[in-house]
Each structure stands twice: as structure tokens, then as C-alpha cells.
Simulated assay, not measured.
Amino acid sequence: MSNNSFLTASQQKAKKKNFFILSILVVFIVITFVISMNTGVIKLTPMEVIRTLFGFGDAQQQLILYEFRLPRIIIAVLVGMGLAISGAILQGISKNALADPGILGINAGAGLAVMLFISFFPATTAAPVYLLPVLAFVGAGLTAIVIYTLSYKRHEGITPMRLLLTGIAVAAGISSAMIVLTLRLSPENYQFVATWLAGSIWGSNWKFVLSLLPWLLILFPFVYAKARVLNILNLGDLTAVGLGASIEKERRWLLAASVGLAGASVSVSGGIGFVGLIAPHLARQLVGAKHQFLLPASALVGGLLVLLADTIGRSILEPSEIPAGIVVAVLGAPYFLYLLARVKE
């Protein structure tokens, strides 16, 4: 057997393995999805959920499932996917294992824009829902520009550690500004902001699903089409230039997509951190570093992680809730420290 034939057989085997892993992740999401539909203060048995889904449930069951649980579950999955893909992009374009929209301050920038908007409205539910992702994108975009500008050196470009430290510093400054802004909030809005900062899935109706879904439907195919570019960027700038890639142009487009995904997700989920860090790392261990598989695997792992965290948060201390961001942080903080100990300048 020739080397080419052996390589082709090996590649086919790797593809089959990766497709199998993606299928397993989908099954896990479906299982968690079903468990989450049965979780809450008012219990619904699996049969009641099935009957309601097929239109045979009573009025109360339909209200609980269609108006309260299903929108929140779908938002949790979409948010996890958006944050995970955003993190995978940032890690790819920066070659930084610690890159994450939360750690680099992009989530904080989006949150600041949303908070400024909310502070001028007497009730958050009265705010135009479809405008929130746009405002979050603007806030996240301005933050990304500041971080990129401060991190860039003409003769050195952007080093992973400089990007990380700049992002942490900018995020700290934005967080301080948000604390100052809370002083002018009404008690009602202050309570909302406190819950939002903890990472609660607060946008839990179909309007928020519709406000978030177009961002993922537009940006994910665009990012997936750039998978080959991300693979080339991982080879290093000199190699990428040699292969004909326009490095800075591609990085800007991918950074804009990452900012859009993170901003839209944060606008309906609050400050959920570490998803963009953990999900790509776990996905990389499962399917390897090629972005043709890494991006969808990251999306599935991220969706599963946030959905699982929100389900645990809703059920562990019933009738009270623990924000999904806190549950993710319990897992994410130790993992971040582990990665920080391994990473090199």
C-alpha cells in the first residue's frame, strides 16, 4: 500500500471518528434537553412532556413548557454555542490557549453597553429586545478595538501573553465602570443587573430566541467557511503569508465575527464566563485541531455545557435558582488556573 493510500485511509478513519463524536455530543444535548424540560418547580413527567409536545397537554402544561421552559432551554443552547465558537475563533487568530471573550474583556464591553441601555429604561422588559444584541455588538466591538490596539506592537505584532494581560486590564476597568453605574439604578433594575452579572439566562421568552438566532445563523456559516484560514493562521504568520493568506484582513473579519457572536450571546445571558475557554479545549481533545471539526464540536460542547449548568442551577436549590454563570465558573475557574500553569509565553 502506497503512502498516499495509507494517508487517505487514515484521514477517512479520523473523519469517521470525528463524525461519531459529533453525533454523540448531539445525543448528549438531546438527553439534557429532555431532562431540562422535566426540571422545575412544577414537575412534568416525561410522558406529560411528550403529550404536550404533540399537542395533547392541558393548558397549564402548555404554558409551562412552551412559554417558560422551551425558550429558556433553547436560549441556553444557543448562548453556549455562540460563546464557544467565539472562543474558538479568538484562540485560533491569536494562537493563545487562554483566549476567551470573557477573560479578554469582550463580554464586559458588551455588558457595559447593555447596562447603559437598561439604566435609561424603567423596566428591562420594556426595552426593545431586538436592539440589545446590536448594542452588545457595538460595546464588544469597541472593547475589542481597544484591546487589539493596546496589544499590537508594530515590529512584534500581538503576543499571546500581552493580549491576555491587556484584556484582563480592560475587563477590570469596564467592571469598575459598571459598579459605578449601578449607583444610579432603581432597586428593580439593580436587582436585575446583579443577577445579570452573575450570568443568569434572563431572556427567557421567544422574542429573545428570535433576537439571538439570526446572529448565529449568519455568523456561524461565515466562520465555518473560514475554517481553512484558521488552520493556516495556526501554522504561524510567516507560513500563512507564504500560503497566500492576508493575515491582518482575515484576522479582522474573524475578530468581528467573534465579537458579534459573543455580544449577541451576552445580551440575553449575562456575564457567563469560561465557556469560550473550556469548550474549544475540550473539543480539541475530542476531534483534534482542524477547525472543520473543531468549530462544530466547540459549538456542541458549549451548548451542552450552558444547558447543563442552567438545568443544575434551576434544580439544585428549588425553588431558588443559581445563575448558570456561577455553575460554569465553579468548573471553569480551576480549569483556567490549570491552563494558566501550562501555558508558555
Rank of each mutant, 00 (worst) to 15 (best):
A171W: 05
R51V: 06
G157K: 08
L63K: 04
I74S: 00
M161F: 10
G111F: 06
I168W: 08
L163W: 08
I174Q: 03
I85Y: 06
A127W: 01
F68S: 02
L116T: 07
L131E: 09
A140W: 02
F121K: 07
L63Y: 05
I158Y: 03
I174S: 06
L104N: 04
A171F: 08
L104H: 03
A99G: 12
A97S: 15
L135M: 13
L132T: 07
G55S: 13
I174A: 09
I85A: 12
I93N: 03
I93V: 14
I85R: 01
T166A: 10
I179M: 12
A136V: 09
A76Y: 01
A177S: 14
I73A: 03
L132G: 01
A108S: 14
M178E: 14
G157L: 05
V129R: 00
I145L: 14
Q60P: 00
A140D: 02
G111I: 10
G141Q: 01
G141Y: 00
E67W: 02
T143K: 01
Q61R: 09
S119R: 05
T125L: 13
L116H: 00
A140P: 03
A59Q: 15
A140S: 14
T124C: 04
G141L: 00
G80V: 05
G173Q: 07
L98K: 01
F120T: 11
I64K: 02
A97G: 10
F56N: 14
T143S: 12
P101L: 10
G139F: 06
V114K: 02
R69Q: 09
P128T: 08
I89F: 10
L78F: 12
A76G: 13
L104R: 04
I174V: 15
A59K: 15
G80M: 05
Q61G: 10
Q62F: 05
P122C: 05
V146W: 00
D100R: 07
I103R: 06
Q62G: 12
P71W: 04
A171S: 15
Y66Q: 09
G92T: 07
I147M: 05
R72Y: 04
Y148W: 14
P160S: 05
T149E: 03
L90D: 04
V114R: 00
A108V: 09
V146Y: 01
A127C: 12
Q60L: 13
G80N: 08
A88I: 11
N96G: 12
G80H: 06
T124Y: 10
T143R: 05
A84T: 09
G157Q: 06
L112T: 06
I85D: 02
L70N: 01
G111K: 04
G55C: 14
M161H: 08
G105I: 10
L150S: 04
L65A: 06
A177Q: 14
Y66W: 14
G80E: 01
A172T: 14
A84P: 07
P133I: 11
A88D: 09
G82C: 10
G111D: 11
F54L: 15
A126W: 13
I158L: 07
L90S: 02
V170E: 04
